[in-house]
């Protein structure tokens, strides 16, 4: 059985973002990078399945991007993936979701993956398209926003998270793709022995130009900070003074201290 998990490396979302020189995406200077949070849940679920089913299963992690994404790949290997594919693309951020999905689908087409895991969306772009589009291009069944996952002899039972905390329960046969929501599991921290072990695991590097066949379908015109709606008061300074100001505001503007 073959499993694939697709991950993206994104900036730490606590960072301050500035437009790049073309003004269509963020500037990469002064950013710290990490694995997209949703993808950590995807990796964990794939690794859990890999552990449950044993040695006959091969779990590959795939990421598209410049050399820096190898750091995210290494984390996935240390979490328990068997091997990795790095699709080298210095300008991955300029591709639209359709192109990214096409690159993954072209790579995966003849590999015979039974199950593909992705995050439900990336934290930086947030389009929630790539996973489903990969499945559509491969002709796989797919299901999004998983907060529950079970697998038994070729059948996935998935719990989808719906609005208001309700869940939808879905059954589908492999080959299939699932997109993982936060809270699906508890992603593990790689242990030191596993980090050491992962250094021997293979990372195959492919050039994106060999896999890219699709033209972009959408274009970003500009990237910018939201216009502040105003009205909100911003308080800065010493804690003691802030406390006094807030108590004054609570007394004046709300009825909760009366």
């Amino acid at each position: 059985m073959k499993l694939l998990v697709c991950i993206k490396q994104v900036p730490d979302l606590e960072s301050r973002f500035k437009p790049d020189s073309e003004g269509v995406w963020y500037s990469e200077s002064d950013l710290a990078w990490r694995m997209n949070e949703y993808d950590e849940f995807a990796v964990e679920q794939a690794v859990q399945l890999r552990e449950k089913l044993g040695e006959t299963v091969e779990l590959t992690v795939l990421s598209i991007g410049p050399d820096r994404v190898v750091e995210a790949i290494k984390k996935a290997l240390a979490m328990g993936c068997d091997n990795a594919v790095h699709i080298q693309d210095p300008v991955a951020a300029a591709k639209d979701p359709w192109q990214i999905a096409s690159v993954i689908a072209v790579y995966a087409k003849d590999k015979g993956y039974d199950l593909i895991f992705t995050g439900m969306q990336s934290q930086d772009r947030g389009s929630a398209q790539v996973g489903v589009m990969v499945a559509e291009q491969l002709g796989y069944s797919s299901c999004t926003t998983l907060v529950g996952f079970e697998y038994d002899s070729g059948v996935v039972t998935a719990k989808r998270e719906l609005e208001g905390g309700i869940k939808g329960v879905v059954k589908m046969k492999t080959p299939a793709l699932v997109t993982c929501q936060l809270g699906l599991n508890v992603p593990r921290y790689p242990t030191l022995p596993n980090i050491m072990k992962s250094k021997k695991k293979e990372i195959i590097t492919l050039a994106v130009s060999d896999l890219l066949t699709a033209e972009p379908l959408a274009a970003t015109i500009s990237f910018y900070s939201p216009t502040k709606k105003g009205g909100g008061l911003v308080l800065e300074g010493e804690v003691a003074s802030l406390v006094d100001q807030v108590i004054g505001i609570l007394k004046e503007k709300t009825s909760v201290l009366r």
Partner: peptide, 9 residues
């Protein structure tokens, strides 16, 4: 984009 910190057109 970026967790609602930024916008794109």
């Amino acid at each position: 984009s970026c967790n609602a910190k930024m916008r794109r057109t």
